[in-house]
Design a protein around this nucleic acid. Structure first.
Length: 459
RNA sequence: GGCGACGUAGCCAAGUGGUCUAAGGCAGGGGUCUGCAAAACCCCGAUUCGGCGGUUCGAAUCCGCCCGUCGCCUCCA
């Protein structure tokens, strides 16, 4: 196999693809997680799958990776929900942190190495705000602290907007006394009944963006390799996060590669909690297998928007059978082996080009096809089957699992019924044989009569 | 209003100057296997890339205009 080309990743900051090389011995990867005030939806799943696949692929290409994904567990919506439900903000966030893990585990998304939570990082947050203050990047206003955008000469560089452009056509919240309309809160003075912590500026809580800065700096350092999230976070969240972090540490760049995934849409609109057009993960997994959801997400390039359509996921369910079928059979012991290497090379080339998963998956299906053809001509395809498992594994796609419905009949029962049907067939009692087959079909078992006997699989 | 992305077969989706008379998946048609079957395997599929001009020896790929869809500018993966 020839020397692989370097992995290239598209960077929102530079607006172009460039050869990826981590600064140190391990890739520092931070992914913006969810605000835990409700059940997660498929958009969160999409983002989580994409950055998990990035993690896996980096490892596949020989990098060591440390992935950190945060939970934002203090926020207006959490507080509001706590009030509605007559409970505490902690209780609300605990509940949805747990449900996030349950959902992502159900989707077989490999967990990050660390999941920090804002409320456990308050001292670090206060430290950073003090550093920003010390560098003239912040000012105190009635117990709140604001970031001074004019103190940051290149503010706007991530979202590629000047302050003038940002102000055009938009009204920033006219907070009394702010030096500039785009100045944003690093620390919010406490209001009665809200969670609050002591600080040099009085009792209060962190602003929206500062938490991520603190968690990145604390757990990964002043400059990280990759920062990921949905493209709806580019502005203001990531823009502000970068401005704060670079002001606090003086280290530039704060993030070497900014990666943003496209939005999941429902009926042409972005799926979002505020629009109310969401499909919760816990609903989706009742209907779809984790593998099908993953293949569906990866069927598009991660920067493009993805349209939710249950039929599309269902189609992946059928496509998966092709892949599973290609590794399930025992290879003929023949000599002329099928060479998986060219397919693997195509896969790597595609993935190296900013994770072109659609193209990578095309190579996967072509390899499956070659395996089937090899089998039919009696070739030894064992090594090729291994390659297929290897490259699907790099996508986090397991080919060994099938949907087994709760209360499904046992393998032994199926085997018994299949034997009985074979007896009927031997006796040419086809009506009885078909009756058994129908029964099995209703239980989700598919019968296949081949030259070497009858096999069955669960759908 | 400002900034940006996209429009490729019935559907999803790669390809961004010649190897494209355009990957891969789903659906559809034909076939193999089978007692009949099968959601299993094999074969077939756009002379064409939203529209109109232009650049070029050559464009789905570059430029301009138009039409359409979407995202950010406010909480958001």
């Amino acid at each position: 196999m020839r020397e692989p080309l370097p992995l290239r990743l598209y960077n929102t900051l530079s607006r172009e693809k460039s050869d990826f090389k981590p600064a140190g011995s391990e890739v520092k990867l931070y992914v913006c997680g969810v605000t835990v005030y409700d059940y997660s939806h498929l958009g969160h799943a999409m983002s989580s799958i994409i950055f998990e696949v990035l993690h896996r692929y980096l490892e596949y290409r020989g990098f060591k990776v440390r992935r950190v994904q945060n939970f934002t567990d203090v926020d207006d919506k959490i507080i509001r929900k706590a009030v509605q439900e007559g409970t505490s903000a902690d209780a609300v966030s605990d509940k949805y942190v747990q449900s996030f893990f349950d959902d992502m585990d159900a989707l077989k998304i490999r967990r990050a190495d660390l999941y920090p939570r804002v409320t456990r990082e308050i001292p670090q947050i206060i430290d950073i705000i003090r550093q920003i203050e010390a560098r003239g990047g912040a000012y105190d206003l009635n117990g709140s602290v604001y970031f001074r955008v004019l103190a940051d000469a290149d503010y706007g560089k991530l979202s590629h907007r000047s302050l003038d452009e940002m102000l055009q056509g938009t009204r920033f919240e006219a907070e009394q006394g702010k030096e500039h309309p785009a100045d944003f809160a690093l620390w919010k003075a406490s209001k009665p009944g809200e969670p609050a912590w002591d600080s040099p500026w009085g009792s209060g809580r962190p602003g929206w963006h500062i938490e991520c800065s603190a968690m990145v700096l604390h757990h990964l350092g002043a400059s990280i390799d990759i920062h990921g999230g949905g493209n709806d976070l580019i502005f203001p969240h990531h823009e502000n996060e970068m401005a704060q972090s670079e002001t606090a540490t003086g280290a530039e760049p704060f993030t070497r590669w900014w990666l943003h995934n496209g939005m999941l849409r429902l009926e042409g609109e972005k799926m979002s909690k505020s629009l109310g057009n969401i499909v919760q993960v816990r609903e989706a997994i009742k209907r779809h297998s984790p593998e099908a959801v993953r293949l569906w997400v990866l069927s598009g390039q991660y920067r493009s928007p993805l349209l939710y359509d249950p039929e599309s996921i269902e189609a992946q369910e059928r496509a998966l059978r092709r892949l599973r079928g290609a590794v399930e059979f025992q290879s003929p012991a023949g000599e002329s082996a099928v060479d998986g290497a060219p397919y693997k090379q195509r896969f790597i080339d595609a993935m190296d080009d900013d994770l072109n998963t659609p193209q990578g998956i095309a190579a996967v299906f072509d390899l499956a096809s070659a395996i089937y053809k090899g089998r039919d001509s009696g070739a030894n395809v064992q090594a090729a089957q291994g390659t297929l498992r290897e490259i699907t594994g790099a996508l986090g796609l397991s080919l060994d699992t099938r949907r087994v419905a709760i209360g499904a009949i046992s393998d032994a029962e199926v085997d018994g019924m299949v034997r009985q049907r074979t007896d009927f067939r031997t006796q040419k009692r086809f009506a009885d044989a078909d009756g058994v087959r129908k029964q099995l079909e209703e239980a989700g078992i598919v019968i296949k009569d081949g030259p070497t006997g009858t096999t069955w699989t669960r759908l």
